[in-house]
Design a protein around this nucleic acid. Structure first.
Lengths: 252, 252
DNA sequence: CGCTGCCTTGATCTTCTTCAAAACGTGTGG
DNA sequence: CCACACGTTTTGAAGAAGATCAAGGCAGCG
């Protein structure tokens, strides 16, 4: 058996919170899926409406329950979307990366954010007031349609997650969660398909709707079975095929 | 203790499948939340693009996995949105009533429906091809924004459901599910706030991510505790307050 | 009536959480 | 460079929650 790698292969995102420089903004906006189809001068117009802000690792971007006034776009880094329960239990709903948006979409008056957004790494985020964003959607109908597509896709994913959670075992859910993460953040490395972000057992458990201990047990088991390689705050997948089998069926 | 009512107080929806008459269509479209703001002549235009179809109780409208070509609007009746697992387990994702839409929103080529839609009662549904709907959204930007709002709201609900399922007990989830159903379909009656639709224990279990037996046990328990009144295929809530406490906290 | 679905109930058994404690890695300060 | 301290991860054992299996009961309907 090869020796387990001790050092995390996850590369930190190099950047200062303040380095969200204005020069890069247009380029970043250009890469946002729902702005990509716009001509440069439109991007220019839109750029004017956004403001930028840096966040350090672990810093909250906004808390659930705060008045929902702005829409954010991740420029660099990873953002956790979390929802809390009375009992202090957290559920990790999604992890967002460069080009993805979060925050207030609807303009319908005085609403509050239903979830908290927390910088998982150093993050630079662009944001725009909800009304201003609404104005953009009105000015550029193609953007509105693109945003709708993305939101509909997220709804499908959420429905899929509901099915997963309510019909599968913890083992299957963890497997599924790892695959989903790898799909989004996976980078091929010697050790396997690395999930390129700091990810604790607790985060994983909160995504799969389970506990830290259970997540740990199952991750260890996966490693013993040769499906993954893992260390502190990182996981790489070595056998996607078998993991996928596990996630969907379980009955074989 | 009052004698339990034996007869279902749920009123069947009176209507023939074929009675989806063309005369009513404009009126129905008018009531659809995202068309409501349009002037009559626009509704007229949109009406031309829709076709109607009736479904009997239990009849599938479309199956998960079929090519997703159309968007549907419920004119009358109730529609179940379900997702299946390999193991034959079903998850009930949502129940849709008059004015709500389902089916294919995205136009992005050759996709398939991720869930099955099944008529829970006799249903009349209007439908439109995905491209035609997209054309409507382009022609009427206000409609696009309204559709986006509704989709975003559904996403929020789905996230809330994920939190519910992953962090609460079956008892709490059933309580929560009943409250949500009552919110949507509740009608005040002598016996309490009646959930106006045929609802089996199995349906309830599939919504709460549990089993028929557990749902039955908990429903019985709720009835013993005086929170609800129930019979075959129907449930009415008598003590919303206590049910709500149960659903959210549980720790008291 | 007797059939066909729903619904209920009990007993068992698996799964997962919980509580508790130890081991490990990582970064820090001496 | 080493040793320490902290947060993360692992592991064990006990317990609870819920699924599963298996009958039996009840209502509505032909």
């Amino acid at each position: 058996m090869t020796k387990r790698r001790k050092k995390s292969p996850v590369e930190p995102e190099y950047m200062e919170p303040a380095m969200c420089s204005t020069d890069l903004r247009r380029e970043i906006l250009q890469r946002v899926p729902f702005f990509a189809m716009l001509p440069p001068n439109a991007i220019e117009q839109i750029n004017l409406r956004f403001r930028e802000r840096g966040f350090t690792e672990g810093e909250p971007i906004f808390y659930a329950g705060a008045p929902a006034a702005r829409l954010y776009v991740v420029a660099t880094g990873k953002v956790k979307l979390m929802r809390h329960t009375q009992a202090g239990q957290d559920v990790l709903l999604d992890i967002l990366t460069a080009g993805e948006f979060f925050g207030s979409l609807s303009l319908l008056g005085n609403e509050v954010y239903p979830d908290s957004a927390i910088a998982q790494t150093i993050v630079c985020a662009l944001s725009v007031g909800a009304e201003a964003f609404r104005a953009i959607l009105v000015d550029y109908p193609a953007v509105a349609l693109a945003v709708l597509d993305i939101t509909a896709a997220r709804l499908r994913e959420a429905h899929e997650a509901i099915r997963q959670i309510s019909a599968h075992s913890v083992e299957q859910r963890i497997a599924y969660t790892l695959l989903k993460l790898a799909e989004k953040l996976g980078e091929p490395r010697e050790e396997g398909l690395l999930i390129q972000m700091p990810l604790s057992r607790e985060d994983l458990a909160n995504m799969a709707g389970s506990t830290t201990e259970s997540a740990s047990r199952i991750v260890s088991q996966f490693q013993r079975e040769g499906l993954i390689v893992t260390g502190r705050q990182w996981i790489a997948i070595t056998d996607q095929g078998r993991l996928r089998e596990l996630a969907s069926a379980g009955a074989d």
